[in-house]
Nucleic acid binder design. Structure first.
Lengths: 143, 143
DNA sequence: TCCTACTTTGTAATGGTTACATCCGAGAGG
DNA sequence: CCTCTCGGATGTAACCATTACAAAGTAGGA
């Protein structure tokens, strides 16, 4: 369900964000990344491609992408922000056992109560925590 | 819709958590607090009553209360955890203008997709961000 | 009173994130 | 080519909420 890299490049152009080498790399990594990487994971992975990459650049880039609406910061964890490229039409589930963060398909746009129509909602996040099927079956086996 | 302080004290007893002076004070503060205070706000407020209060104690207490299920940690902000005493039958809304965090009544228990019945869900959080009515009307006036 | 376990306290460390000063590199204009 | 300019990239240092740890206090039981 991810957008293609070329489509993302076009989005950058449309928003008049210059397509620097580093920004394209961060975007490409988010594009091919299955999970929801942290800033540090992005930094460590891209460092192999760009030896001079700075962590500040990763944070700067993520902030630019977030402000432009192309990337969403997920606050499902206590001391780490994860980043998601997908359009915000789903929730997130964090497994407390293995730590994986998965997508949960659902219509999060329809959640805000209509009765509160005097509020302007810019962003909606739905976060679940629990145990994923893999870890659940593992627990049963170990009994 | 908050629980009474006495009911909370009884909950502590039921869970075999000793009712130390500091823990009762933290609980009482959460009880009479309208908003969703941060650990630091709790610390600063209670410091006037307990001069020797340590920040570590506040964090320890909040962790005990959270693990017992009496308090919920809200991760709606980037670098600050807020704490909520109320039962988890509502979402939260953070105003990006004034920073207030409000309750949003809704049935968050029914959110998880039935199709994912192999997942064990322990916790659900729904976080909205946007502009509250007060700030919206303020913006209009300033035009 | 002594013993033991639990709680509180204060300080030091941790670690993700940001501020800031500096450096680089591409494009504009000469 | 040269130089000027400006946005982006870099690295270091700082920030700050949170946690680890060790020491000191406290309550209850024998």
């Amino acid at each position: 369900m991810k957008l293609s890299f070329d489509a993302l490049k076009q989005q950058l152009k449309d928003r008049e964000i210059s397509l620097s080498h580093q920004r394209l790399k961060v975007l490409a990594f988010l594009c091919r990344s299955r999970g929801h990487p942290t800033a540090d994971e992005i930094y460590l992975a891209l460092r192999e491609e760009i030896a001079t990459l700075s962590k500040t650049t990763v944070y700067n880039t993520l902030r630019v992408l977030e402000e432009s609406g192309m990337v969403q910061a997920i606050g499902i964890e206590d001391h780490e922000t994860r980043f998601d490229l997908s359009p915000p039409d789903h929730g997130h589930f964090k497994c407390l056992s293995c730590g994986t963060v998965s997508d949960v398909p659902m219509d999060i746009q329809a959640l805000f109560p209509e009765a509160m129509n005097h509020w302007r909602v810019d962003e909606t996040q739905v976060n679940f925590k629990g145990i994923c099927p893999d870890c659940l079956s593992g627990e049963e086996e170990s009994k």
